[in-house]
Design a protein around this nucleic acid. Structure first.
Lengths: 199, 199
DNA sequence: TCTAAAAATGACATGGTGTCATAAAGGAGG
DNA sequence: CCTCCTTTATGACACCATGTCATTTTTAGA
């Protein structure tokens, strides 16, 4: 995480830096993002950057944590709105993640952040590292609607749902398919997941 | 793809370079792999590397194509061995991909290659770009065992299977979970996919 | 006002990629 | 064996990145 120094910065400066981070990590993947660009845009000297962040990873982590917090909240809302129906909630999560306005998170930034989360295998549904005092999102799922044979089944099921949402979302955010195509794919996939595939 | 010059190289030299490529791309992800290391190990001057490959991407592509060819063949075998039963074949594909000996592909290299394939969203089951004169692997699936409502259902279904295999395979290859844990997860997930989750 | 801690700064060491002018090697024909 | 043209080999170089560090500046408390 960023240093104490960074959080002690006066509002205007911190926001200027944050804006530069968002801009650079929107334009380029983590690997290709350039600290040089960030400091140029934020108009701070190189040394300052390293006073605020340990390294590039530390800087993107700052954005990731902000995203995960708001994302978690949004997923929670989706589950509440659908009364815990995970199938309906999945579509809502998809809609929200592929929508243009996610707080101040540019859609390209969301893509790059989801990419990083995937790389580090962070599953937002079960993540407790970042959200220490929050309940796991799984607890808000209505289990009565599901054909669960054992406790662990929910875990396996959520792995599949997460993989499906993530996969189709990434394809949309990478502009390989349209939002509408993505939605159709997701809905069909959920249908299969509901009914099973074995004859 | 590599230049004509590369393929004209005498056997010994080409293999020396190939070995260096495999070694470097095993040790490091694409982004972190260093051309400097490759040319040092292969004992060729910097300029030669760029005579053979357009850039770093071109070099890993060479390995990826080799992998995809052998991977495709292996999946085909899995489908034949299981008489087109995609659920059984899925487990075999998992076993093979997480096994230590994949031709001369180090397990770490497989991980990095799968990572690149995923990044570019290349789905080996439906890929026809690389394997122009091969049939799609989907044609070898026994559709009679599946509860298909329409033609496109197989496509959606394969998307799920692919996502599931890939996800659990990557976790094993990244050593976040053991091979056995991975297998259990995969089998449970396939069970869910067979029976469906809606009560 | 003085002083110690905190923050800011930019030159620099190091190491990467891709280019290019030039040298060397290969091969076909006289 | 020499010549000329094409193909291949070579490494110095331009350029650009990251992360460090000695030094300066600012801040805050006594």
């Amino acid at each position: 995480m960023p240093t104490k120094t960074f959080f002690n910065l006066r509002e205007e400066k911190r926001q200027r830096i944050e804006k530069a981070l968002i801009n650079e990590f929107s334009k380029s993947s983590f690997e290709q993002a350039s600290i040089t660009n960030i400091i140029k845009e934020a108009n701070i000297p190189r040394g300052s950057f390293y006073q605020y962040f340990v390294d590039k990873k530390d800087a993107i982590k700052y954005l990731i944590e902000k995203f995960v917090l708001s994302d978690h909240e949004r997923i929670y809302q989706c589950l509440v709105e659908t009364k815990g129906d995970i199938f309906d909630a999945a579509v809502r999560v998809y809609d929200y993640r592929t929508s243009n306005a996610i707080l101040n998170f540019d859609i390209k930034l969301v893509k790059n952040i989801l990419e990083e989360l995937r790389k580090n295998n962070i599953n937002i549904f079960e993540n407790k590292d970042i959200l220490k005092n929050e309940k796991s999102l799984m607890e808000f799922i209505d289990k009565d609607k599901l054909n669960l044979k054992s406790d662990k089944d929910l875990y396996y099921f959520m792995r599949i749902i997460t993989a499906i949402i993530r996969s189709v979302t990434m394809e949309v955010l990478s502009e390989r398919i349209s939002k509408e195509e993505g939605k159709e794919i997701l809905e069909k996939e959920l249908e299969i997941l509901k009914n099973g595939m074995e004859k």
